[in-house]
Design a binder for these strands. Structure first.
Lengths: 189, 189
DNA sequence: GGGTTTATTTGCCAAATGGCAAAAGTATTT
DNA sequence: AAATACTTTTGCCATTTGGCAAATAAACCC
């Protein structure tokens, strides 16, 4: 629980009452490898925080091609902000890549009444701003260079992640096939 | 001027006083093809609005490889939000692709005193939120499929833009060489 | 542990893309 | 209109990546 509080404190201030309030209302959630936190078409009703494990955000197109959009590990929020904020159906899947231990804050904690207690608007604004700037700066770098460059780039940005997620998922994130990624790995070593 | 006001009104409400205030303080700026609105290393001091023309946002890596990050046309804001909001040096170039006619709002209009007059915080939050969600939804689609798919996708999303920007710029946006893009065009027709 | 499933590597060849340079086409200037 | 500069197309060939299927390795289940 402390981890989640510290995470939130990076963005907004909380007094002891507010911390107690969150501690009382957060629930633990265990996801087994393969379990879904959110499915396309469903509206995001809650916000998760990863205590342990890795989750993947991905998209399926009409031909069932699987594109990985993001990987999230410990001390990160898990939520489709677009769906959660606008309460519209999500266009992505969020799935546990490994067994996961999450803390979950129910959507009701974010409603008008509770926003008086916790400055959620400010919190999400900061999260979104930070995330927006990251994308601005690094986002399009994904298309730069050949597959090997993109892979090395990924290793540099997320050094611990590559050996926690299946090759196929990483390949779809990098925009190549898993065979190609396998060969790239081989060439590098 | 009316165009800019209407654009802002999409996001926040303004009364006649506020509209007059903006009208008085906005300045016209003409950029010739090739002129820069912002250069890497400079801090964004103003916000532009395109009345006419196309601008390109791009990045140069250490080997001077040019990667197009975005193209903007009429009725869009021109600003490196990351640099402008945090008043830190920009990591991108913003350059006129065609002759451009802009309205420019100086940074001073956004300072504390003037924020009392105009709800800039809310305005930028909405812009950023909208932009963030667009990236979430469509951003990574860029890496989906082969170069032809990405080109067709671009044509669908920005039907008028393709014939207003040089082939080389579009190619760098799509992550391919201009020769390849030229061949792709040929094959399609 | 043995069997089953899933993930990864590899071989083979086809297809896509890059690199380079020259040619053809357009736009711009004088 | 001619000269110049810039953009786009094309040819040639090397390299990268994809597609498919089989082999190997690793993880999972009973």
């Amino acid at each position: 629980m402390e981890k989640l509080i510290n995470y939130i404190l990076q963005y907004v201030q909380l007094d002891q009452n507010q911390i107690d309030f969150l501690t009382t209302n957060a629930k633990e959630l265990y996801l087994k490898k393969g379990d879904f936190f959110l499915k396309e078409g469903k509206t995001a009703k809650e916000v998760g925080f990863i205590l342990n494990g890795v989750v993947r955000v991905f998209h399926l197109d009409k031909d069932a091609n699987d594109t990985s959009l993001a990987f999230l590990e410990e001390n990160r929020l898990v939520v489709d902000l677009a769906s959660f904020n606008t309460q519209t159906p999500s266009s992505v899947y969020i799935q546990a890549v490994t067994n996961c231990e999450l803390l979950v804050l129910n959507g009701e904690l974010f409603d008008q009444t509770n926003s008086l207690k916790i400055p959620w608007d400010l919190f999400f604004n900061k999260i979104m701003t930070e995330s927006f700037f990251n994308k601005e700066r690094k986002g399009r770098i994904a298309l730069t260079g050949d597959a090997t460059t993109r892979y090395l780039n990924f290793l540099k940005n997320y050094p611990n992640l590559a050996n926690r997620i299946p090759l196929s998922n990483l390949a779809s994130y990098l925009g190549i096939t898993q065979s190609s990624l396998s060969r790239i790995r081989k060439n590098i070593s």
